[in-house]
Each structure stands twice: as structure tokens, then as C-alpha cells.
Amino acid sequence: MPALLEVKDLKVSVADREILHGLTLSVNAGEVHAIMGPNGSGKSTLSHVIAGKPGYEVTGGEILFKGEDLLAMAPDERAAKGVFLAFQYPVEIPGVATMTFLRTALNAQRKSRGEAELSTPDFLKRVREVAGSLGIPQDMLKRGVNVGFSGGEKKRNEVLQMALFQPSLCILDEMDSGLDIDALRVASEGVNALRSPDRAMVVITHYQRLLDYIVPDCVHVMSKGKVVRSGGKELALELEANGYAQYQEAAA
């Protein structure tokens, strides 16, 4: 069976400066991969390119998702096919109620897949179930998307969307940034509940701390736009003890 996500020799530039210099990564369904690395190693660039954020120029290589050319798809097509990026900094959208946003997004994805739209009662039931399990109060769903939410609430809102859309690939970009330990635990529990044999997760993080909560199957170390080492979950602990210095030299 081919890997769910196949990144092959990916080269990406921003404003004529190459950020990723031939990155290769293979993620199978059912696995959780952690990508670690120092600031500026290209971790977030990788997540943005997979999700289809404008402003990045792919100059070489390819990304296959379920065997299809992901780079040929618009961001919304990628979402409908099952790619989900949990943002490091979820944006605030004043004037768009969270509930309206969730329903519009879910139905847009279903429509793109040729599925019928979810009826309002069915949708409400699903949102309430998921929100309840994440401890998200109903009044938060009536407010504008992320407007006035704390850092923890914003990340919980990302996990809520993940649970609602049921994507097959979740990319968590620095999910731990801006969270205290309690908020991190709640968000991580939400993520762990979504682990499944049909789903893969790519957890991008700077610190080992998050991986105490979301335990990965594989750990990759990125430095200067490449994966410089891959290993099991013990690699994260080694990094915590020794730091990134040796990899930065190796990649140079």
C-alpha cells in the first residue's frame, strides 16, 4: 500500500530564496510523525506548502497525497480530500459566527466530494457532541470565529474542526505555542482521541514537551530545509538532552 503522504525531494522558495532544499518524507495512514527542528529550519514552510498557502514557489520535487498530485490542487480541494492544517496562529474573523463558519466549511467539503449537505439538526447534533467532548461551551460557538478567544480556546477550536471534518491527514503546526500546561493537555487529549488506523498526523514542534502528550511513532529532525535524521520516539528525548547544534552543523 502506498504511503498516505509522500513528499519527494521537495524544493521550495519564497521571494527567490530557497527554504526547502530537497525534503523527503513518507507518512503512512495510522502513524503519528513528529517533525522537530530549530527556528528557521523550514518546518512551518513545509506545513504551509502541504496546505496550499499562497506565496511559496515549489521549484522541484512533488507531494503525493493518497497517490494524487497535491500541488496541483487548490487549498479548498486539498481540504475536501482530507488535508487539515491546524494553524499555529488561528486567525480571528469578526462578523462570522463560529457555527456558521463550521457549517459552511463542512458543507463545502462535502459538496466538493459529491456528498449531500448535512441537515441543520444533524449538523448541530454533531457539533454539540464534539464541542462537549472538548469542553467548548455553546456560547463560544455563537461568537465570531476566534474573536476574543484565549490562546487555549483558539487551539481547542482547531481541534474541534479537526474532529468535525474527520480529515485523513492532520498537520499540527506548533500546537503548543502559547499554551499553558492545562490547555496543552486538553488540546492533546482531543488530538489523541482522533488517532485512528485510517488517519495520519504530522506534529510540528520546537519542543519535546508536546510529544509527552502526543506520543509519535516516528521523529524527524529538520535543519536548514532538509530532514537530517529520522528515528523513533526516543530521538525526541535525545534532542531534548543534546539540542539541535550537531544537526545544524551537519546540514551546513
Partner: peptide
């Protein structure tokens, strides 16, 4: 981009904003 990453086609994302 946030809206499009959640599955809204371009025109629909613009319309929502």
C-alpha cells in the same frame, strides 16, 4: 487562506468575509 484551508472555494471564502 484560513477559510480556503477549511474547504471554502475562493469566491465563497471572499463572499463570507
Amino acid at each position: 487562506f484560513y477559510l480556503r484551508a477549511r474547504g471554502l472555494p475562493e469566491k465563497q471564502a471572499e463572499a463570507m468575509l
